[in-house]
């Protein structure tokens, strides 16, 4: 081949390759006041599987990152507003609203998102935020449970997440929660589907690389529920898990299933130390 032609081919091939890089080094400050930790040392339980933690925000384009930096640029916040209305509105046979028991969300829900999913002694199981919301709705408000990954639920978990923004994710993995955590860890490293892919294959072995034109992140859920540009709405972590497993061409699990509850606890623990960003903006 002639040298000039080879240079041309090299230039064409180099163009997409140049985009393959690790996370960028931008800093996330929301509303000019909430300093988000988007890079931190990996928690001990990872045992070196990740050398350092990076929030999914660090893998997105500059334009996408900008959408999360101001609560009036962030399209998710209009759904937080809607959830605030729902918080104050009575629903169900008992004539209660969330506010009836929990008062001002800013006070009662501070720090809650950061420690969920967590063990619920009375229920004898690990509870996710969604499961807890529905427990309150059915058993204390006499209201119908919300669809686990539906719009109402996603908006409410977004409202609850806002009250923990900037706080480090800190889910417990020991004590009564340990068995669930171990189950989640096993699912994380299991290959599923025709494509035989595990979560780890992409998010541990290949973060920073491109999957077609997507920049792979470490798969943390500190930003959930997240507003995805792709479907222009809030997405819950179980909805994302369901999609990922489906994309390996496997029979996927259902939102709220024991498998996904366990997986959520494990995946959350992989991000222990990163700031709660929910609701974040991702692609």
């Amino acid at each position: 081949m002639k040298v000039r032609a080879m240079t041309a081919i090299a230039a064409l091939l180099a163009a997409p390759l140049a985009a393959v890089a690790g996370p960028d080094s931008d800093e996330l400050v929301v509303n000019g006041e909430i300093n988000m930790v988007t890079q931190t040392e990996a928690p001990a339980h990872l045992d070196g599987a990740l050398s350092e933690l990076y929030s999914g925000w660090r893998f997105r384009s500059d334009e996408t990152q900008a959408l999360q930096m101001d609560d009036f640029d962030n399209p998710a916040m209009v759904f937080v507003d809607q959830a605030q209305e729902a918080w104050d509105t009575a629903d169900g046979t008992e004539g209660k609203s969330c506010a009836s028991c929990h008062g001002d969300a800013a006070d009662s829900m501070a720090g809650v998102r950061a420690v969920y999913p967590k063990w619920n002694e009375a229920a004898g199981e690990v509870r996710t935020l969604e499961a807890q919301v529905n427990d309150c709705r059915e058993n204390r408000m006499g209201a119908k449970a919300w669809k686990y990954d539906g719009g109402d639920m996603a908006s409410m978990t977004a409202l609850i997440s806002v009250q923990s923004r900037g706080l480090p994710v800190n889910v417990a993995i020991d004590g009564p929660a340990q068995a669930t955590w171990e189950m989640g860890k096993e699912i994380y490293y299991t290959r599923y589907g025709q494509l035989e892919l595990s979560c780890a294959n992409c998010h541990e072995d290949n973060y920073g690389n491109m999957i077609r034109a997507d920049h792979l992140s470490q798969g943390h859920i500190n930003g959930f529920p997240t507003y995805r540009l792709k479907n222009a709405k809030l997405n819950t972590s179980h909805a994302r898990f369901k999609g990922c497993v489906r994309d390996t061409r496997a029979e996927t699990f259902n939102p709220g299933s024991p498998e996904f509850v366990a997986l959520e606890l494990y995946v959350a623990s992989r991000g222990n130390g990163l700031s709660v960003e929910g609701p974040s903006v991702r692609n």
Partner: peptide
């Protein structure tokens, strides 16, 4: 349904 404005001034 569910149409809600959000404005910053």
């Amino acid at each position: 349904s569910g149409v809600k404005p959000r404005v910053k001034v």
